[in-house]
């Protein structure tokens, strides 16, 4: 188990992580969620001892960080790359060596994982001869080769084709069964929803939601409507009884007042839109985020990007 207690980190002008606490339990997939720029990567870097927190503790099964613990962590960073000019197996052996695995052992484990990802033929190729997707798989192999007890995966699915996404999902499932402490960080709520047992949503450095996914969903009730439609959906948020609306090009999620009737909503909506699907359901994580923060993940990210551009211009 990893316990994160009251973590703070301030950079020159911004408070990147503001009193963040959570527990990651073994044998469950823990989702560290939130828009880009929310403080997920900073939190992860503090857990990895790459940067020091201003305050707070990170405890690994009752012990603080040490070199022994470092060797039991596997980390797949969000943005990734490999040495292009070096041979695949040498690269794997190097990173395994840094985690305390002997070169011989690393070769054995490396062959096992390459086989699992259908990359055996490339073992002696240079990394640059591999396709982008295959390089991604190699990076994943590097993060788990030393059989780490704690595994932190930052956006592991980005850049993978659907077939390999399924393969990776299965492997994460296996790691979960093996009782690993698994942290899965992403800004894609739909993906987290399919994967996670527990979730912690961060926005602007603060925890806005934390708990077991199923219980949290129940807590936010059934005042949620999902509509698929054709037409201009912007009118949906103007319908009486609609508290919040996350509107996409042909799909929307509405949160309605507790006394509003879905029947009225469909009636109003059908005046302007061709409705293809209408469903009253548990809120998605996107909807919960909207409810808690007041804007969608995309809106927060857009705003964050604008702020960063402004800051860089100064």
């Amino acid at each position: 188990m990893i316990e994160v207690k009251n973590l703070y980190k301030t950079f020159t002008t911004v408070i990147a992580v503001n009193d963040v606490s959570f527990k990651v339990e073994p044998g469950r997939v823990f989702g560290l969620l939130g828009p880009n720029g929310a403080g997920k990567t900073t939190t992860i870097r503090m857990m990895l001892n790459i940067i020091q927190p201003d305050a707070g503790d990170i405890i690994f099964d009752g012990r603080p960080f040490s070199i022994d613990i470092q060797n039991t962590i596997g980390y797949l960073p969000e943005e990734r790359g490999l040495y292009r000019k070096n041979k695949l197996m040498h690269t794997i052996q190097y990173f395994a060596g840094l985690k305390g695995v002997s070169s011989k052992e690393a070769k054995k484990l490396g062959m096992y994982w390459l086989e699992r990802f259908d990359l055996t033929d490339y073992a002696n190729n240079k990394v640059e001869e591999l396709s982008k997707g295959n390089q991604q798989k190699v990076q994943f192999i590097i993060s788990v080769l030393h059989s780490p007890k704690y595994i932190i995966l930052d956006e592991p699915f980005s850049g993978l084709d659907p077939v390999n996404q399924i393969l990776l999902k299965d492997i994460i499932g296996d790691l979960r069964k093996e009782g690993k402490v698994l942290i899965f960080s992403t800004h894609q709520m739909e993906q987290a929803e399919k994967m996670c047992d527990d979730v912690c949503i961060i926005n602007r450095g603060r925890v806005v939601m934390y708990g077991k996914l199923a219980e949290e969903k129940k807590k936010y009730g059934v005042n949620n409507i999902m509509i698929e439609f054709e037409g201009d959906g912007s009118m949906l948020e103007k319908i009486g009884g609609v508290k919040r609306a996350a509107i996409y090009s042909n799909f929307a999620e509405l949160e309605i007042d507790s006394n509003a009737k879905p029947r009225n909503i469909i009636h109003e909506a059908s005046k302007d839109l061709d409705i293809r699907k209408f469903e009253v359901k548990e809120p998605t994580l996107n909807a919960i985020f909207l409810n808690l923060v007041g804007s969608t993940v995309e809106e927060v990210e857009r705003k964050h990007e604008e702020e960063q551009l402004k800051e860089e211009a100064v």
Partner: peptide, 9 residues
Amino acid sequence: NRIIEVLAS
């Protein structure tokens, strides 16, 4: 290529 992140960890 962000290898530095893995090295630093």
